[in-house]
């Protein structure tokens, strides 16, 4: 335990990333208490495109809504997307990777073939294809992004399983007569959780960026729901008259993703010093 604390102390990236992530979580959970205005209902055209100042610290948008409040509420969407999509991705990836590595043979070939094909499709393009069919909307974003990025967790899980499979404690479990499913979930999985967690953390950042991109294109979260990407999608038209509309939501995405990336990097330095990140959304 002491060892762990010492390890964390030496990692600036882990600390900064953790603090940023904590702030975003607090913003999302306590949004109604933190936001000075309602993000949707407090629209007042009398205060359209007010520059930042008292009482609108980040200014207002075209419909006179307080940008600060919308940024605070936007944390809910980003966090929900990041977590739900990544839980989907990780579940798919871990189950496929675990079974592929453990059972091998034709199943392994099939899973690896599929993974390689997924890796050759740019994530945003695949997400767009799914959105093309499902249509715009937040629930569809969960599905599209949840099915997009599982190949990374699948690959890492499989390679870890291949390494772990031959170790003594797995052989011992086999000798004790444990079933294959039991070995997979009680012996192998707990021992390879570290690298999977690292990939998952970095994946949350990717999912947040992808959701913001989809919403920016108009395919993700639909107005008037405040999402950071969505707030930017109409900002371009007002770039000449009200540039602050463009600045703050983007800054929120940037800082959140930066925090998660720093946290993921720090986590990787501690948990598995050997793998490097390859390929990204």
């Amino acid at each position: 335990m002491k060892n762990l604390i010492r390890k964390i102390k030496g990692r600036t990236n882990l600390m900064i990333g953790g603090i940023i992530a904590a702030i975003v979580v607090v913003m999302a959970v306590f949004a109604p208490f933190l936001a000075p205005y309602h993000p949707v209902n407090d629209a007042n055209l009398m205060f359209s495109e007010e520059p930042p100042g008292d009482p609108f610290w980040m200014g207002t948008d075209q419909q006179g809504r307080d940008i600060l409040s919308r940024v605070i509420y936007g944390a809910r969407i980003s966090l929900a997307v990041g977590l739900i999509c990544q839980i989907l991705n990780t579940s798919i990836g871990v189950i496929l990777g675990l079974t592929a590595g453990f059972f091998g043979k034709w199943w392994d070939d099939l899973v690896m073939g599929l993974t390689n094909i997924m890796l050759s499709i740019p994530p945003l393009i695949f997400a767009l294809a799914i959105m093309a069919i499902l249509g715009p909307g937040l629930v569809n974003v969960f599905l599209a992004l949840g099915l997009t990025n599982w190949s990374f967790s699948c690959r890492i899980t499989r390679s870890q399983v291949l390494f772990t499979r031959g170790l003594d404690y797995v052989k011992a479990a086999k000798a004790l007569g444990y079933g294959r499913i039991r070995i997979m979930f009680t012996q192998i999985l707990p021992n390879i959780v570290g690298p999977i967690l690292v990939v998952a953390t970095l994946g949350v950042a990717d999912a947040i960026l992808l959701e913001a991109a989809l919403s920016f294109l108009g395919l993700g979260t639909q107005p008037p729901t405040p999402s950071w990407g969505g707030m930017l999608s109409s900002a371009r038209e007002q770039l000449f008259t009200a540039p602050w509309i463009s600045i703050f939501p983007g800054l929120a995405i940037f800082i959140t993703v930066l925090g998660l990336n720093l946290f993921g990097d720090g986590l990787r330095d501690i948990l598995d010093p050997h793998t490097t990140r390859s390929g990204k959304a």
Partner: peptide
């Protein structure tokens, strides 16, 4: 570099445009 990986491109583009 870590900032460059994290920055949303459409936002960076908007800033540059501005």
């Amino acid at each position: 570099a870590v900032s460059g990986v994290s920055v949303p491109q459409f936002w960076l583009g908007l800033l540059l445009m501005y």
